[in-house]
Structure formats: structure tokens, C-alpha cells
């Protein structure tokens, strides 16, 4: 009994870390390989989760319709949810890229930050869209009937890992292609990429969209894991900041590092909870802040003392061209 308690705890930890690893991989495309400074990950997280939720749940009917509002409910299988989440996030990325990608790097940062906050505000205020602050519940879980509910997380862990591995190989393939070489050339020095401004813009845009689509899948994976989402989940802290710390810790420009960083930082994050449990009772309610403070300090330490992260950047050489 004790053992199964611990192992189910480890499994849930591994699932969340795996979902965060997907976000890190998405961010790695944008930051690690292209140098795009997206600090509105929470926005893509939010949109991915809600899109998948509404694609896979039915439109509320009967008595539920009075309490739950959502703009659509397609009742389609899980896979469509993932795909839909990716597509909608890609479109949002396109829209945010148009005004910002021609300008300096920090404009993209400010704009993505703004879009993330705006998206959260919209989901919070617009009751008709996705039930406002109460959010959506009961997202379907694939292969739900195969095992007993208390063991279902093992299945979901496998699903998460499969998604993560597929995304990992997809990015590795893309990055080793000529396309990936161009991206890194842009990151290193836009001038020497010997391309027109229009080309640079297009490549940046493709990278932004690609990364955001991956983030959308991460959001969808999250929605179907927790089976309940509300706007308050997608805060800058849980939705953006911790993912940045993960990528910087693991090593930006390195997909293995992105995954490693997600697991290490999520482990530290969960581990600090055990530490704060020893705090006096009066401080218990402030424990999450103490834990985030530690994560914040960790980021600064990484930036100053080990900016390359745990693994550092991997040299990527295109087999086709070199």
C-alpha cells in the first residue's frame, strides 16, 4: 500500500515533468535554435488546453447547459484535440509574429507577454467562450476503460512519453535539416545569414509557429491529464517562468537538455515542497511563494554561473550539406 502510494506519486510527477518537457522542446525551437524570446508561453498553454478540451468534450446539454457554457463542443477523439490545439496555437503565433518579428527581440517578448495576459483575461471574463473563471471539466482520457481508474496514470504516462519522444525526433530531424541550419545562422547573426529581411522574417515566423504548435500540444496533454482547467492555472509563474528556468537549466539549443531540464526543475519544484512542509504552521500558507523564490534565484544563478545549462548546446551538423 505504501509502495503503491509512492509509485503513483512518482508517476504523476513523471507525467507533469513530461508535459513540461514538451513545452521546453517547443521553447527550444524558438529560443534555443532561433533566439526568439517568447515569454508568453502561458498563453499558448492556455489556448492549447482549452482548444483540446472543447474539441473532445460534447456541447453541454440538458441541465448542464445552464451551468456550463462553451463556444463549441465537438466530442471528437483525443488525437483531434492534440491536433486542434497545435493548429490554433500556430494561428495565434502567426498573428503575434506579424507585428513583432521584424523588430528587435524584446518586442516579441513584450508582445507575447501581453498576449498571454490578454488570453487569460478573455477566458476569465467571457462566460460564453469557455465557462469563465470556473473553467471546463471532464476532458476524456484515451484508453480510459483499459485499466482501473487508480492505475490510469500509468497509461497516461506512456501517452505523454510517446508524445514527447515523437516531438523530440520531429524537432531533431527538422533541426538537422538545411532549414535548421538557417535558423541557427539567424540566431548567431542575422546579417551573415546572407538572406533578405523577408527570408529572415519567414524563417523566424516558421520557427515561432512550429514551437507554438508544440506548446499547444503540451497544453492539450495537460488538459486531459488534470481533467479540469480554469484560467487561473495559466499564470506567468506556472505557465511561462518555470518553463524558461527548465530550458535554461537543461541547456538551450539542446533537445536532450530541454527534457532533462524539465525533469530536474520539476523534481526540485516538487522536492522543495517536502522542505517547506517543515516550516512552522504560520508560514505554511506562504510556502508556494518561498518555493518560487528559490526557482527565481536558481534562474539567476544559472544565468550568471552556467548560462549553457547542464548539457550545453549540442553541435548540429546537417548530414546533407556538410
Amino acid at each position: 500500500m505504501e509502495f503503491s502510494g509512492i509509485s503513483s506519486y512518482v508517476v504523476s510527477l513523471a507525467i507533469m515533468a513530461g508535459i513540461y518537457a514538451v513545452f521546453c522542446l517547443g521553447l527550444n525551437i524558438q529560443w534555443g535554435y532561433t533566439g526568439l524570446f517568447n515569454i508568453g508561453i502561458a498563453g499558448f498553454f492556455c489556448i492549447g488546453a482549452y482548444t483540446s478540451a472543447m474539441i473532445t468534450t460534447p456541447m453541454p446539454s440538458g441541465i448542464y447547459a445552464q451551468y456550463v457554457h462553451q463556444i463549441f463542443g465537438l466530442n471528437l477523439p483525443f488525437v483531434f484535440g492534440l491536433m486542434g490545439a497545435a493548429i490554433v496555437c500556430g494561428v495565434v503565433a502567426l498573428l503575434i509574429g506579424i507585428p513583432t518579428l521584424r523588430l528587435g527581440e524584446d518586442y516579441l517578448a513584450i508582445a507575447t507577454l501581453g498576449i498571454a495576459e490578454t488570453i487569460r483575461l478573455i477566458f476569465n471574463n467571457e462566460q460564453w467562450l469557455a465557462n469563465g473563471p470556473r473553467g471546463l471539466m471532464d476532458m476524456p482520457q484515451p484508453f480510459h476503460s483499459v485499466v482501473s481508474p487508480q492505475n490510469y496514470n500509468y497509461i497516461y504516462l506512456i501517452i505523454t512519453v510517446i508524445a514527447m519522444v515523437i516531438i523530440y525526433f520531429a524537432i531533431e530531424k527538422a533541426i538537422r535539416s538545411p532549414w535548421g541550419r538557417v535558423l541557427r545562422a539567424i540566431r548567431e547573426d542575422e546579417g551573415s545569414a546572407s538572406m533578405s529581411g523577408k527570408d529572415v522574417f519567414n524563417f523566424k515566423m516558421q520557427s515561432l509557429i512550429f514551437g507554438s504548435m508544440v506548446m499547444g500540444i503540451g497544453g492539450a496533454l495537460y488538459a486531459h491529464y488534470t481533467k479540469a482547467i480554469s484560467p487561473s492555472v495559466f499564470t506567468p509563474l506556472y505557465g511561462t517562468f518555470i518553463i524558461w528556468v527548465m530550458l535554461m537549466a537543461g541547456g538551450s539549443g539542446n533537445n536532450k537538455g530541454a527534457i532533462l531540464g524539465a525533469y530536474v526543475i520539476w523534481g526540485i519544484w516538487v522536492g522543495t515542497k517536502f522542505v517547506t512542509d517543515f516550516l512552522p504552521y504560520t508560514l505554511q500558507s506562504r510556502a508556494p511563494y518561498i518555493r518560487f523564490l528559490i526557482i527565481g534565484i536558481l534562474l539567476e544563478v544559472i544565468l550568471i554561473y552556467r548560462p549553457q545549462g547542464l548539457l550545453g548546446e549540442e553541435k548540429k551538423i546537417s548530414k546533407l550539406l556538410d
Binding site: 524570446f37 527581440e105 524558461w244 528556468v245 506562504r286
Partner: peptide, 25 residues
Amino acid sequence: KKSGPVILAMASLGASFIIRMTILI
């Protein structure tokens, strides 16, 4: 360390969370 402006901006994002968490604590 000749870190670029984006790294400094990222560090400031970290600083913003550190300050906010301190106030929350």
C-alpha cells in the same frame, strides 16, 4: 560576461519574480 540584452531581460524577469515572491512571503 558580455551577455546580450535578451539574457539581461530574462534575468530581470527572474528578478521580478524574486521581488514579487518576497513581498508575497
